[in-house]
Structure formats: structure tokens, C-alpha cells
């Protein structure tokens, strides 16, 4: 579950005009690019960065929801949440594998995450404070992610597109799972409904920020669109998300925490859509740059798991070597 305009992409590349033109022709003809194909260095770098950020988002994204596994309020919810968080882990795994086809290892990517060099979706730096947050994350965060991930299934890079097809198929239950939690809370006691409203209040704006800066401020979007790594602009996807989500909030009987939100029949080429209030981009950049409530804890948790697991990984390798040695000796 990830949706964010690539943070800090670098599409610069130094190949000859002729090479770039031939490559662009393949892209324009909707040919998929496969790992060992000749490709501009900027294309490779952008992909490694984007797939890496996407993978890290899945992995870090396990933490805020994992925070509620042991407190899930029923056995059914616990099973669903376990399965959902497990999926996020699986999706991180598929994505690391897709990036690995470009010649970067999972270990390298992991180290970049732990050192703070690699970014991940800023939404996961917000804490999950109540059970309703699990509903809100499924509904809003997975809802936002799906807007971004479905077009990624047609991304020009084959392994990324294939991973995304699998991910989208598996994630289809995630948003429904979240919305069902919200629905149950909204039909429950006044305290439960208040819990749901509070979760919407806290997650609405961060969910809108997931789509990344406005197009006019998104420096590297254009090149990514041209290479068909990205198919829709940040603002297009954000608009789609808002238009889909506001009626869902109304159905729940919840109030979207945006006093400026209003229907505008002129939007979307006259089909109508919702205009929203100003997004607090200072907050966005503050959180992306490391000063959200949970940034430090998230990275610390990932690093702890990795470092405390080192002896396990080493033991498995040592055992494999021993076994290989014994086999060789027996021959």
C-alpha cells in the first residue's frame, strides 16, 4: 500500500540522443522493458529508487497496523489483520525482488532504509492511536494506494508491472476490510462512532498528502510520465481519490475534516468533483524529512529487527555451508 509521488527522483541521464530516442520509441509503442535490456541510466536509477521506496513503504507499513494485532477486538478481526499485515510483508518482498532485477540487492536497499537515505511513504510516520485507525488505514490509505497502484500495473518496466498485478489482486480485500471496520464502528455505540470520526480527522489530510506535491511543484514527475513509470499525475490521482472517498464518508455518517470541501460541477471536464482546502505542505515536508511523530521509532524498529536477526541469518548460511561441506566430503 503505497502511493506517493516519487520523493527526490533523479531522471538525469547521459546517453546519446539516438539511444534515448530509440528507447523512447519502445516506450511509446507500449513495449515492456525487461531487466537486462539496454536502458538509460536515469530510467534505471528512477526505477530502483521508486520500487525501493514502494517496497520500504510496504515493510514500514507493517508497523502501524502490526501495532494493533495483539489488541484486535475479535478473533475475526485479528485473523483479517494478521492476513493483511502479512500481505504488506509479501508485497514488500515482491517489490524488493523486482528492484533486485536491476542489480541492487535487498540488503543494500535495507541498509539505505536504515540509514535514512531511502524514503518511504510519509503516512506511516503517523501513529495508530485507536482501533478505528486500523479501519481508517484500510479505507483511506489502502484506498489511496490502490489509485496509484492500478496504473502501475501498466508501468513500462516488466518486473514492476508484474509485481503490481499480483499486489493489486491481493490487496483487493484490504480497503474493504478497513471500510467494514469503519462501518461497524459507525453503527455501534456513540463512543465507537466518535473513535471513527477521530480516526478520519487524523488520517484524512495525511492520506491526501500520500499523492505527493502538486503537479506544479513535482520536479521529476514529467520524466517519469514520459517513461511510463508513472501514468497519472499526483493531482489527477488525488482528485480521483477525493471524488471516490467523500461519498463513502457520507455513507458512514462521518464528516470529512475540511471546511472548504465543496462540490464543483465544473471539475473533471464538467462531470463534477470535489474541491478541497489547502493541504499543509509544511507538515508534509516536515514528516518526509524525518520529523513526524513516528519516523524515529519506525526506523528504530526496522533496524532492531534486522540487527537482532543477524545471528539467525548467519546461522542459516553457516549451516548451509556445513551441509555443503559434508556432502562434498562424502562424495
Amino acid at each position: 500500500m503505497y502511493s506517493q509521488g516519487l520523493i527526490g527522483a533523479d531522471g538525469r541521464t547521459e546517453e546519446s540522443e539516438a539511444f534515448l530516442e530509440a528507447f523512447q520509441k519502445r516506450i511509446d509503442a507500449e513495449e515492456k522493458i525487461e531487466p537486462k535490456d539496454a536502458m538509460p541510466e536515469g530510467y534505471r536509477r528512477t526505477l530502483i529508487r521508486q520500487i525501493g521506496q514502494h517496497a520500504h513503504s510496504e515493510i514500514v507499513g507493517m508497523l502501524p497496523e502490526g501495532n494493533w494485532i495483539t489488541r484486535a477486538p475479535s478473533l475475526k478481526r485479528k485473523a483479517a489483520l494478521l492476513a493483511k499485515v502479512q500481505d504488506e510483508g509479501g508485497h514488500g518482498l515482491y517489490l524488493y525482488a523486482a528492484a533486485e532485477t536491476l542489480g541492487v540487492s535487498r540488503e543494500q536497499m535495507t541498509e539505505e532504509l536504515h540509514s535514512g537515505k531511502a524514503k518511504y511513504s510519509s503516512i506511516f510516520n503517523y501513529p495508530t492511536l485507536s482501533w478505528a485507525d486500523i479501519g481508517a488505514i484500510g479505507w483511506l490509505v489502502d484506498g489511496a494506494a490502490i489509485m496509484n497502484q492500478i496504473p502501475l500495473c501498466r508501468c513500462s518496466f516488466g518486473p514492476y508491472a508484474r509485481a503490481m498485478i499480483r499486489i493489486c489482486k491481493e490487496e483487493s480485500f484490504h480497503q474493504r476490510q478497513g471500510y467494514e471496520i469503519m462501518l461497524t464502528l459507525c453503527r455501534g455505540t456513540p463512543e465507537q462512532k466518535e473513535m471513527a470520526q477521530d480516526a478520519l480527522n487524523r488520517f484524512w489530510w495525511p492520506a491526501l498528502m500520500m499523492f505527493g506535491p502538486h503537479d506544479k511543484d513535482s520536479a521529476h514527475s514529467e520524466q517519469s510520465m514520459k517513461w511510463k513509470i508513472k501514468r497519472f499525475s499526483n493531482d489527477q490521482l488525488r482528485q480521483k481519490f477525493i471524488d471516490a472517498t467523500v461519498p463513502q464518508a457520507e455513507y458512514l455518517g462521518l464528516t470529512v475534516p475540511d471546511p472548504d470541501l465543496r462540490w464543483d460541477p465544473e471539475l473533471n471536464d464538467g462531470k463534477g468533483g470535489y474541491r478541497h482546502g489547502e493541504i499543509d505542505w509544511d507538515e508534509f515536508w516536515r514528516v518526509v524529512k524525518g520529523d513526524g511523530v513516528m519516523n524515529r521509532d519506525r526506523i528504530a524498529a526496522r533496524r532492531k529487527a534486522w540487527e537482532e536477526g543477524a545471528w539467525v541469518r548467519e546461522a542459516a548460511l553457516a549451516h548451509a555451508a556445513k551441509r555443503e561441506g559434508r556432502r562434498a566430503a562424502a562424495e
Partner: peptide
């Protein structure tokens, strides 16, 4: 082919 995994040996 469906993807890949990391593991120390064939059984894992």
C-alpha cells in the same frame, strides 16, 4: 515463474 525469495538453502 512467479517471483523470487531469499533463503540460505534449498529447503528454506
Amino acid at each position: 515463474h512467479v517471483g523470487s525469495v531469499h533463503a540460505a538453502d534449498a529447503v528454506l
